[in-house]
Amino acid sequence: MSHSIEIFLAAHRAMIAGIHMTPRSANDKEYFPQDWFADRVDGLGLPLMPQGRNSYPDFWVGDDAHAPVEGYEIKSLAFNHGRPARKDYDSNSTIPSGRKDGRDVFLVFFLYTGSGASPRPVQSLCIAHGDLINADHAVAAAHVNEAIRGFGSYGEGFIRDRKMYVFPHPLTVYPAGIGRCSLILPADWDVSDPRLARVGSLERVVADESLQGYRIHLDGKTPADKQTMRRSDAGQQRRFHIYESC
């Protein structure tokens, strides 16, 4: 049904075997978790298709001829002083969600220790269906970056409206997963696999209103204006099951 189970089990094996993430340089802030993930997928013999920077998701896995194609977005944060560096994560220029082009997308989220060019041990790992973070698929697909022209004294400049979206990461939604290796899937998938143990459930409640738009003022003083609308699915619950390796 999904490659996520095999990938999760391979990732768990690597984590408990002490296979660390290796930065490409002391300044590497994003590639080492992607490389670690790619090694796990390669080891399973699954087709792996990386995308370019600022594309969502980072990888497509599978092929239409033999297996379903799924997306995997890779994010990581340092784990210092007994807690993650942040409670949220940045999504640059794209809105994360659990579907893209009609395909399921998963968020692979790491907490790591270490710094610089030294290997980074995996402190926590969570593979979660993207709907845990955001289930507004249509809004995510409709995202655009704009160029607003006519700016400056002579009207020759433009404002590059390239957005940064910030969402809570999976281990903020499921803090009991810190220090563990977890797989979070929609409850209606009804996963049954003898290699997995269901250890809990999560419920996410749909917000009362959706943000339809906003207006930014350039005087440096006036707060942004937001336009919202009552959601037709307000208050609905989305349920997810949490699994660990047996």
Rank of each mutant, 00 (worst) to 15 (best):
S4H: 06
S182L: 02
G62I: 00
Y165L: 09
G71E: 10
K75F: 03
A78E: 13
Y31R: 08
Q237R: 09
R238N: 06
L185H: 09
H81R: 10
P194L: 10
N80M: 12
H169D: 15
S25K: 06
V173P: 07
F32H: 15
I216Q: 09
G82V: 11
G152W: 07
K75L: 04
V206K: 00
P84Q: 02
L132A: 06
D131S: 07
M15F: 08
R198F: 14
A135C: 05
A67E: 08
E6R: 08
H66Y: 05
A187S: 13
R103K: 15
A117W: 09
P96A: 06
H241D: 15
Y72F: 13
R120A: 02
I148W: 07
I148N: 02
E30D: 10
H143P: 04
R120H: 15
L77E: 06
S245G: 12
M1V: 10
Y214T: 03
L107G: 10
V69A: 13
I242P: 13
W60N: 07
G130R: 01
P175A: 01
W60Y: 11
T228D: 11
M21A: 11
F110G: 14
H3T: 01
D39W: 03
F109A: 14
P23T: 06
G130E: 09
S2V: 04
G116R: 11
H20E: 11
D35L: 14
R160W: 08
R24C: 02
I184Y: 08
A224P: 07
D58R: 00
H129N: 12
R83L: 09
K163R: 01
G177N: 02
L107H: 13
Y72L: 05
P23S: 08
V105F: 08
P186Y: 12
D136Q: 00
D188W: 12
E156R: 05
A128C: 14
W60E: 12
F158V: 02
L125K: 12
E156S: 04
N134P: 05
K29F: 01
I216A: 04
N27K: 12
V41Y: 00
Y31E: 09
N27D: 14
R149C: 01
E30W: 10
A138Y: 00
R160Y: 09
S4W: 05
A197M: 15
Y31V: 03
R162Y: 04
H143K: 02
I178R: 15
G220S: 14
P68H: 02
P50C: 07
H241M: 15
D104P: 07
K226I: 01
A17C: 13
A138T: 01
E209S: 13
A10R: 01
Q51V: 00
V191W: 15
S232E: 13
H169P: 01
L218D: 06
D28Y: 02
Q123Y: 14
I178W: 13
G43T: 04
C181N: 13
D28S: 08
V41Q: 00
L132F: 05
T172K: 14
